[in-house]
């Protein structure tokens, strides 16, 4: 499935709604659906808030693929180059207050809640891939 949004925070709601439907169809449990919601919220709010150096309208594409035990989320944006993996590495060990001040609290969550992150700069696009090894119908408690 592919979802396209423009660079406005309120657009993230639309992604949450489509994604939740898709993940329920794929029988992802509540606990995994919540982890995905958090990761998507972090990545999209980061892109929308920090990636663009102009005030223009930009498209962000989210590609979703679900295999038997793995969910793959791909984020494509035409913002300035930004490697979240390097950023997570460079801010490792910082306190919540530090990360709140310098940024990075959200990416730290993504790094820990997802099982794999990959980043590529392709032409004028950032391509971030997240992978989650999920359990079907796993309930939160």
């Amino acid at each position: 499935m592919t979802i396209e949004i423009t660079n406005q925070i309120k657009e993230i709601n639309r992604v949450h709604r489509s994604l939740d439907r898709y993940l329920r169809e794929k029988s992802l449990g509540e606990y995994d659906r919540k982890k995905v919601s958090i990761a998507v919220d972090e990545i999209l709010s980061n892109i929308i808030s920090y990636a663009y150096q102009d005030q223009g309208r930009h498209l962000i594409r989210i590609n979703l693929e679900c295999t038997e035990d793995k969910l793959i989320l791909e984020f494509l944006d035409d913002g300035k180059p930004f490697d979240p993996i390097e950023f997570i590495r460079n801010t490792e060990g910082r306190s919540a207050e530090d990360l709140d001040r310098i940024g990075g609290l959200g990416l730290k969550l993504v790094g820990r809640l997802m099982d794999r992150l990959d980043y590529l700069r392709q032409g004028n696009q950032n391509k971030l891939t997240l992978e989650l090894n999920y359990s079907k119908n796993y309930i939160d408690s």
């Binding site: 919601s37 958090i38 919220d41 919540a96 609290l105 959200g106 969550l109």
Partner: peptide, 9 residues
């Protein structure tokens, strides 16, 4: 349901 960093802040 869940909290993201916007909520933590």
């Amino acid at each position: 349901n869940y909290i993201s960093s916007a909520g933590l802040r």
